[in-house]
Design a binder for these strands. Structure first.
Lengths: 130, 130
DNA sequence: AGACTATTCCAGCAGTCGGTGTAATAGTGT
DNA sequence: ACACTATTACACCGACTGCTGGAATAGTCT
């Protein structure tokens, strides 16, 4: 049985002005938690977030342009892109001796988008609470 | 040509029945990225995810019950709860010599919820792409 | 007060992360 | 072949993470 059916979400107003009510029957399993940890871990890095955000704005970018965009060395960028590639979040295309990266996992962007929204009005939300 | 026209509207396939539309004008700033990193970092841990998920299901739980729920030592759990508390994600209430934790940051749960959904149908989503 | 319980504090430590610098690889152009 | 560019692989290392075990703290009960 898919997880989705176990969950009931009441009142998801928008991404940002959040009033999420979670009604869950069973605690998350250790395996599920580990899978989520991996998902969040890949997003828990400033450099990778900036790379992903850059890639979300255009079709594709080569390593050197990405490196320039975030003002870091190509080695560091390549390293991070490699990890994103390993998890199937980005894909590559070679043209000459440049390698272009593009985003292929839109769900990750969904999470990123959501986090950005939450970031924006986290202050007001926090104020509303209790 | 403004970048905006390149991104247009990317309609991400409904994950968790939430339409995410990404229309961003500028690359994320370093500060924004760092703030998001912090947000994701706190979720990038199996133990914390399980604690949060447990707390999402009930009003409140004491440390020892949480420890029992995830089958770990009270010290380890207390340690993680402390971090969640430091970031205002959970709050405490003392009753006798037990301390009850409760969830106060619903935004975090929104993210958790979304990640759980994505986890569920990540296979199908990946298949659709590209 | 003394024994007991629940929780937290703290030092220690193995494991991981994320960068640097150097070298290797792959492609281009003369 | 040679020089050159873009990217990657690798060793290194400083910082952080997350657990453990022992001790300290705070409350209960007799």
């Amino acid at each position: 049985m898919p997880i989705k059916s176990k969950l009931k979400v009441k009142n998801v107003r928008t991404c940002c002005s959040v009033h999420v009510t979670l009604v869950e029957q069973e605690p998350i399993t250790s395996d599920q938690a580990a899978a989520m940890e991996n998902r969040f871990k890949i997003l828990a890095n400033e450099t990778r977030l900036r790379l992903l955000h850059n890639l979300a704005r255009v079709e594709e970018m080569c390593v050197c342009d990405l490196a320039a965009a975030v003002e870091m060395t190509p080695q560091a960028i390549s390293n991070q892109l490699q990890r994103l590639s390993d998890r199937g979040i980005v894909a590559t295309r070679r043209s000459g001796n440049m390698i272009y990266y593009r985003l292929v996992d839109q769900c990750i962007i969904g999470l990123l988008q959501k986090a950005l929204c939450l970031l924006d009005d986290s202050a007001t939300v926090r104020k509303d609470q209790q």
